[in-house]
Structure formats: structure tokens, C-alpha cells
């Protein structure tokens, strides 16, 4: 039986920056982002696709980065939490979450933020029911969700007011 190499090189774009690395075939995308690209903002919460902490955007659409192989991201464009605003310059969405005291321990936060980025791109004016339905793929153990929902609502308002970025 012929064998293929156990590692491959991967070239991809992360937050607009070309990145590359050599990865084992079996390595998940989230492990590659965190270990190889040292982008530790994306968190690993369950490794079986339920908690949503590892949610990133793949070519603009939300995906669980624990449920993809790193090699599958070859040639693709990713967005992670690091691509939004910085501590000195929060994006309107991050600012809205801060003002709503959206999060506590912060571990689930990157997944919620990226899920919200995708939601508001597709539906700039979601109802509370739509927000809750969309966020139900992400688990938070601290907040009871209400402050996150409020954050999404005010982010939607901020983005509608033209603070798009």
C-alpha cells in the first residue's frame, strides 16, 4: 500500500494576512491556529463541536474550527477574534459587548463574538428570538446569556448607525 506524507504544508489567509505552516494531517484547524500560528484567541472548549468556543469564519461563514482539519484550510481565508479591534481600538461590536457587560470569564467569548459577526453580516437587524436562536450553538456558563443578547442588540444598532467596519 502506498503511503502519503503524514504532514503537509498549509497556506492560508488569516485576518487578511498570508500565513503558512507545516501540519500533521490529523491536526485540527483550531490546534493549528493556536499552536502553529500562535493565535490563541480562538479557544478549545469541547473538541466535539457542541460548545462553539472555537467558532471562526471560513470564507466569511461561521464554522467550528475543532471540526476541521488544518489541511482543509489550505487556500482558504479565515477570520478570528484577533482580526477585530485591538484593546486600544475596539470594534463597535466589541464595544457593545463591553458596554453590556456581555461576558465574565471570557473563555466562550471569542466564539460568541465571531458567531455574532456572522449573524449581523447576514441579518443586520435580528429580533431577540433570532439572536437567541443563533447564539444557541454557543455555550456560556457564566452569564445566563442575557447580557450577551443585549450586547448583540446594541451592536446591531451601532452597526446600523454606520459604525460599520
Amino acid at each position: 500500500m502506498t503511503t502519503t506524507p503524514t504532514t503537509q504544508s498549509v497556506q492560508l489567509t488569516v485576518n487578511g494576512v498570508a500565513r503558512s505552516g507545516e501540519t500533521e494531517n490529523r491536526k485540527t484547524l483550531v490546534d493549528f491556529l493556536r499552536d502553529d500560528l500562535e493565535l490563541t484567541g480562538t479557544h478549545v472548549g469541547c473538541e466535539h463541536g457542541v460548545c462553539g468556543a472555537c467558532t471562526i469564519l471560513l470564507d466569511g461563514e461561521p464554522v467550528r474550527s475543532c471540526l476541521m482539519l488544518a489541511v482543509q484550510a489550505n487556500g482558504r481565508s479565515l477570520e478570528t477574534i484577533e482580526g477585530l479591534g485591538s484593546p486600544d481600538d475596539l470594534s463597535p461590536l466589541q464595544q457593545a459587548f463591553r458596554e453590556s457587560h456581555g461576558f465574565q470569564c471570557g473563555f466562550c467569548t471569542p466564539g460568541f463574538v465571531m458567531t455574532t459577526v456572522a449573524l449581523l453580516r447576514e441579518n443586520p437587524d435580528p429580533s431577540e428570538a433570532e439572536i437567541r436562536h443563533c447564539l444557541s450553538g454557543n455555550l456560556c456558563r457564566c452569564t445566563g446569556y442575557q447580557s450577551i443578547v443585549e450586547g448583540v442588540k446594541s451592536a446591531a444598532l451601532a452597526l446600523q448607525a454606520g459604525e460599520n467596519r
Partner: peptide, 20 residues
């Protein structure tokens, strides 16, 4: 406003698994 949120909301928190 929480001091913690500036790092938490930007992916700059430092949890155990972030250490190398």
C-alpha cells in the same frame, strides 16, 4: 466598564492553554 474586557474581547486573554 470592566478592565478585563479589553483583553477578553480581543482574544488577548491568557488562559492556561495559551502558554508555551
Amino acid at each position: 466598564l470592566r478592565v478585563e474586557d479589553l483583553r477578553i474581547l480581543t482574544g488577548r486573554g491568557r488562559y492556561v492553554d495559551d502558554l508555551k
